[in-house]
């Protein structure tokens, strides 16, 4: 265990989460009674609860009223809607890492480890042997392919199982048919989705991706969406 984490550790037996839920009346009567009884007998948890109360006082004293709109010119690097939609395991989801403003396309990834399937976050840690499967969103019909550049700098095509992009309909979070079992090449893998206006041959794109050493190649007539994950040693 990391010594720093030990020093930074929360200092009470009831978690901040449980105490917040208690204070904001989210617990069942039974749970709340349990917390109340515990607080009566535990100075450490009472101190933690007092800390939360004083943070609430700070908020009332110091926090500005809610601004009605995001500051102009500020890139909003996350989407609450995406957080709320994040499926299965693992909280938030910043779709595909790149959903540039107004960009009508994105990709997401699911990982199957043993029997468990989870939604991958950008940078997700995966293991050799895990199975990944992609979902895409596009407001327009497009011709789609998904390529990747692995930790060893080798580019390959995840989808489709053929030499060129495949036409797909407009969709929100539509899963692609093929799952891929991950090989043993470790390190950060960059996934690049091509959303093209018309069908494109993939081999030149694959070569360009490999030659660009992690930079994104320009592919005329196509917009790109990216995602990355990290393959760790088991």
């Amino acid at each position: 265990m990391n010594a720093l984490l030990e020093d930074a550790r929360w200092q009470a037996c009831l978690s901040a989460f449980r105490l917040d839920r208690f204070r904001l009346q989210e617990l069942t009567a039974e749970d709340a009674a349990e917390v109340r009884a515990h607080l009566a007998g535990c100075a450490q948890c009472r101190a933690a609860e007092a800390q939360l109360a004083s943070a609430e006082d700070d908020f009332r004293a110091l926090a500005a009223p809610l601004r009605r709109r995001p500051r102009a010119g500020r890139a909003v690097a996350f989407s609450v809607a995406a957080v709320a939609l994040a499926a299965t395991c693992l909280l938030a989801l910043n779709p595909g890492g790149v959903r540039s403003k107004g960009a009508p396309t994105s990709i997401g990834m699911y990982v199957q480890h043993g029997q468990a399937v989870r939604r991958a976050l950008p940078g997700e840690a995966v293991l050799p042997g895990d199975v990944v499967r992609f979902v895409y969103s596009s407001r327009e019909p497009r011709s789609l392919a998904i390529l990747s550049l692995d930790g060893a700098g080798v580019a390959s095509v995840y989808f489709p199982d053929g030499p060129q992009t495949v036409d797909v309909p407009a969709a929100e979070e539509a899963p692609l048919p093929l799952g891929t079992r991950l090989d043993g090449v470790l390190g950060e893998e960059q996934v690049v989705a091509l959303f093209c206006q018309r069908t494109r041959a993939l081999e030149p794109v694959r070569q360009a991706l490999q030659a660009a050493h992690g930079a994104l190649p320009e592919v005329p007539g196509c917009s790109l969406a990216t995602f990355h994950f990290t393959k760790l040693a088991p």
């Binding site: 989460f17 917040d20 839920r21 904001l24 989210e26 809610l66 601004r67 009605r68 709109r69 995001p70 500051r71 909003v76 996350f78 989407s79 609450v80 809607a81 957080v83 709320a84 939609l85 994040a86 909280l91 938030a92 910043n94």
Partner: peptide, 26 residues
């Protein structure tokens, strides 16, 4: 502000606290 911009359909209305923990952490 982002909540105002895109009002969320909360997945688990059971706990607003859980949802705010998630959002803040992210």
């Amino acid at each position: 502000a982002e909540l105002l911009r895109t009002p969320p359909a909360l997945r688990s209305p059971g706990s607003l606290v859980a949802w705010l923990y998630q959002t803040t952490t992210h």
